[in-house]
Amino acid sequence: MISDGMAEVLRLLQRDEGFDAAADVAVLAAVTLGVTGLTVSLATGGDRAELMWCTDEAAGIFEDLQFTLGEGPGPEAVRGDAMVLVPDLALVRPERWPALSVEAADLAARAVFCFPMGIGAIRVGVLTLVRRTAGPLTDGQVGDAQVLAHALAGRALGSVVPGPNGAAPADSADALLHAVVHQATGMVSVQLDVSLPQALARLRAHAYSSGRPLTDVSRDVVARRLRLDLNGNGDGNPLPVSDKD
């Protein structure tokens, strides 16, 4: 169960009131998670990352360093598709991250926790929590951080579409539980020769503009009743509507 504090962070995130508000949300998230600062880096292809959130200098320096060196808990979390929790950097074997261990001694970061953001093979980026003091996160904080990473991934992938009355989720919370949505993502990526995140964005855009649930649109794609064109419209190659499966 997520904490009340994190529930508030997610509410603010959903409201989306621009860049200045986002900075406040990031600070609130850090406080909720009991850390000194946090960063959110977006993968921009390859090993380079673009900083989307950065609450303070210490967290930013650590993030820059590990992505410059190409090693550390962040790159490891992204490559390994799982969180990497380092309650005390001073206790990490130097051979794990040789270059980082040389530099890290001078940094204000003592505990670092990295949570990959993504959906399956779609790797969006990484949420990194930094604390000046050593010590583990509580089980509840780990759960909160996972939920936050998931929400940020959804945002980066356009799960929230701005409407006339503010932001509205483009699909229901359970949509990503359905195998068929992921299958459709894979199919569209091949049909349009685009990346998996772009394919998911096309599916979402079509669901949103046609006013249908993402799962229904995905079922039609998988059954080859619907083929998206490059603009995400459903008239790429109209197929005769066959019986429902």
Partner: peptide, 30 residues
């Protein structure tokens, strides 16, 4: 999973499942 934590292992398992579904779609279309 390369993950020392149980939660990390659970997360890796869930992610693997989604990757598998995405790949089913890629191969089905190819």
């Amino acid at each position: 999973a390369h993950s020392e934590t149980e939660r990390g292992q659970l997360q890796y398992a869930l992610t693997s499942r989604i990757v598998l579904e995405q790949v089913k779609g890629i191969l089905a279309e190819r």
